[in-house]
Design a protein around this nucleic acid. Structure first.
Length: 476
RNA sequence: GCGGAGUUAGCAAAGCGGCUAUGCGGAAGUCUGCAAAACUUUUGACAGGAGUUCGAAUCUCCUACUCCGCUCCA
C-alpha cells in the first residue's frame, strides 16, 4: 500500500486512484521566461521520481506538465528584451526541454502550452460567469471568491486574512472584493491579445492550469503537484475555478515539494539567487544533481551549498563504481552456478533490501530511506565481489536486477549501454590480464604497469585484489 | 497580524515512543611491488527548559532562533 501526503488534508492517506491502475496527474510546470534553475529542477526531479515509482508499481501514469507561455512575467521579459512574447516563449521553451533532458527527466505524456488553449479557456470563463461565480468589470473578468464557500481550504486561510490593506491589488477599483482574482485581463497597449466576449485581452494565470488539466485528464485528477509557493494563491484559485465549474472535487491528492534554499533564503527567480542547471552541470554530473535532490525527502527544504554538491558528486561516483561492477559480472561468463552459504546470504540481503526499499518508497516516497538501503547493499556487494571464492551467477543477477530497478526509479546512471560488444571486449581484456599476470610473476613491473596504464587510457580500469583482478569500463 | 515548515554529530540527511539509519568527512587498520579500489574498526547528534511515561530525538507545554506563504515564483 502506498501512502501519500496531501496538502489538502495535511496527513498521510492511502493512495487510491479513480480508475484502477491509472494515475491522472497534473504537475504545474514553469513559466518559460528564463533558464531552468535548481529550484525548478528539484521539483521536477522529485515528481519525476515519484512518477517513475508509480510506473514501477504498475500504474499507467498520465502525466501532464504545462508550460506557461502567456502571463505577466512573460510580457515583462518580452518588453525588457524588446521582443515578441511568442518569440521569448519559443526560445526558453527549447532551453527548458534541453535542460530537462539533461537531468534525465522523462517527458510528460503531454506538455500543453497555454497560448494554444485560448478558446477553451475563454469558454471556461464564460461558464463561470453564467454560473455566477465570475463577473465582468471594465474589460476584466474576476472570480468572485466570496461565492465559493470553500475558498481557502487548501492553504488553510480565512477570507478576512487574505490580502490585507495596502497590498497593491486591494486598490484595484474593478474588483468587488480585494482578493478576487483575474480570470481574464483586458489588454494593455502592446500586449498580446485574443478576442473575447469581454473585448480583447488574455487569460489569467491560474485559469490556464484549471482548463488544461481538466481538458487532458478529466474533471477530477488523482494528483496535482507543484512547488509549495503555488499553494496560495495559484492552487487555491484552481480549486475555486474547477470545482465551481464542475461541482466535483478537482483533485484527490495535492503534492507540494519543498524549496531549495541558498544562503538561508529561498532560491527563486525574483531574488536572483538561483543556480542554473546548465551552469551546475558544468561542474557536476546529472547523477550527482539527482542524488543531491533525492537524498532529501521531497517535502523538506534543501539547503544548497557547494560542499553538499561535492559530497553528492563523490557519492554518485562511488555508487556508480559498484553498480558498474555488478553490471559487469552480470554480463560476464566467468561466473558459477553452484552456491554456498555466502551466496545465500547475499540473496537474502538483496531480497530484504528490495523489501525495505519499497517500504521506504511506500511511505510518502521516502527517497532518503530508499537510498540508505541502496548504499547498504552496495557496501555488501563490494564485499561479496572481492571476498567470495567464486562469484555466483544467481547472486549477481539478483543484485543486478534490483539495481536496475533502482536506477530506473531514481533515473540514475542510465548510460550503461557501452556494453553492447561486451563479449569480444571481455576476451581481449582477459587475455591482457593473463599476460600481465605473467609479467607480475616475473616481477616485471614495467610491463605490468604499462598494460594497466594503457588499458586505463583506453577506458578500462584494472584493480588488483587478493582474490582476483577486477576490471571495468570507466566513464569518458 | 494571519497561516505553514523547521532547529539531529564537522557537513548533508532519515527517524513519528524502546531497535547500529545512511552518505560525505576525521582517526586507526586490512589488502598491496606500486597504483587504484574496496573492506574492517572507530569517531561523534538530537536548540534550551519543564512535564507525561517503566522508557522521549520522537508526545505535551514554555522559551529562543531560522525559513517560507499571505505579491510573479517549482
Amino acid at each position: 500500500m502506498i501512502k501519500i501526503y496531501s496538502t489538502l488534508t495535511r496527513q498521510l492517506e492511502e493512495f487510491k486512484t479513480i480508475e484502477p491502475n491509472v494515475v491522472k496527474w497534473y504537475n504545474c510546470g514553469p513559466t518559460v521566461n528564463g533558464l531552468m534553475h535548481l529550484g525548478h529542477a528539484r521539483s521536477a526531479i522529485a515528481f519525476d521520481t515519484i512518477r517513475r515509482y508509480l510506473e514501477y508499481r504498475g500504474y499507467k501514469v498520465d502525466y501532464v506538465m504545462n508550460f506557461t507561455d502567456i502571463e505577466d512575467r512573460m510580457i515583462e521579459v518580452a518588453n525588457k528584451e524588446k521582443r515578441q512574447v511568442l518569440e521569448v516563449a519559443e526560445e526558453y521553451l527549447s532551453y527548458f526541454r534541453r535542460d530537462m533532458a539533461s537531468i534525465n527527466l522523462k517527458p510528460a505524456t503531454v506538455h500543453p502550452r497555454a497560448m494554444l488553449h485560448m478558446n477553451p479557456m475563454i469558454e471556461f470563463v464564460e461558464k463561470l460567469v453564467e454560473k455566477g461565480y465570475a463577473y465582468e468589470s471594465g474589460g476584466d473578468v474576476y472570480y468572485d471568491i466570496r461565492k465559493f464557500k470553500e475558498y481557502g481550504k487548501l492553504s488553510n486561510q480565512k477570507l478576512e486574512n487574505i490580502l490585507q490593506e495596502g497590498t497593491e491589488d486591494t486598490k484595484n477599483p474593478n474588483k468587488r472584493f480585494p482578493a478576487d482574482f483575474a480570470l481574464w485581463k483586458a489588454m494593455k497597449p502592446g500586449e498580446p491579445n485574443w478576442p473575447s466576449p469581454w473585448g480583447k485581452g488574455r487569460v489569467g494565470w491560474s485559469l490556464e492550469c484549471s482548463q488544461m488539466s481538466m481538458m487532458y485528464l478529466g474533471e477530477t485528477l488523482d494528483i496535482h503537484s507543484g512547488g509549495q509557493d503555488l499553494i496560495f494563491p495559484h492552487h487555491e484559485n484552481e480549486i475555486a475555478q474547477s470545482e465551481a465549474l464542475t461541482g466535483k472535487p478537482f483533485v484527490n491528492y495535492w503534492l507540494h515539494n519543498g524549496y531549495v534554499n541558498i544562503d538561508k533564503e529561498k532560491m527563486s527567480k525574483s531574488l536572483g539567487n538561483f543556480v542554473n542547471i546548465v551552469e551546475l552541470l558544468e561542474h557536476y554530473s546529472p547523477d550527482a544533481v539527482r542524488l543531491f535532490v533525492l537524498q532529501t525527502h521531497y517535502r523538506s527544504p534543501i539547503i544548497f551549498t557547494e560542499d553538499a554538491m561535492d559530497q553528492s558528486q563523490i557519492t554518485a561516483d562511488r555508487l556508480f563504481n559498484t553498480l558498474l561492477l555488478v553490471k559487469h559480472y552480470a554480463k560476464s561468463e566467468e561466473i558459477l552456478e553452484s552456491s554456498n552459504e555466502m551466496d545465500e546470504k547475499m540473496i537474502e540481503k538483496t531480497n530484504k533490501s528490495r523489501e525495505d526499499f519499497l517500504k521506504g518508497m511506500n511511505e510518502d516516497f521516502n527517497t532518503s530511506i530508499a537510498l540508505a538501503v541502496i548504499f547498504d547493499l552496495s557496501h555488501e556487494v563490494n564485499n561479496y565481489i572481492r571476498k567470495t571464492e567464486m562469484i555466483n551467477a544467481t547472486v549477481i543477477h539478483e543484485v543486478d536486477q534490483f539495481f536496475d530497478e533502482f536506477r530506473s526509479i531514481f533515473g540514475l546512471f542510465e548510460n550503461f549501454d557501452q556494453y553492447s560488444s561486451f563479449a569480444t571486449l571481455e576476451q581481449l581484456v582477459k587475455l591482457l590480464i593473463e599476460l600481465r599476470k605473467n609479467f607480475r610473476n616475473e616481477k616485471n613491473w614495467e610491463m605490468s604497469d604499462k598494460i594497466r596504464d594503457d588499458l586505463k587510457k583506453a577506458g578500462i580500469a584494472l584493480e588488483d585484489t587478493p582474490k582476483r583482478i577486477l576490471w571495468k569500463l570507466t566513464e569518458e
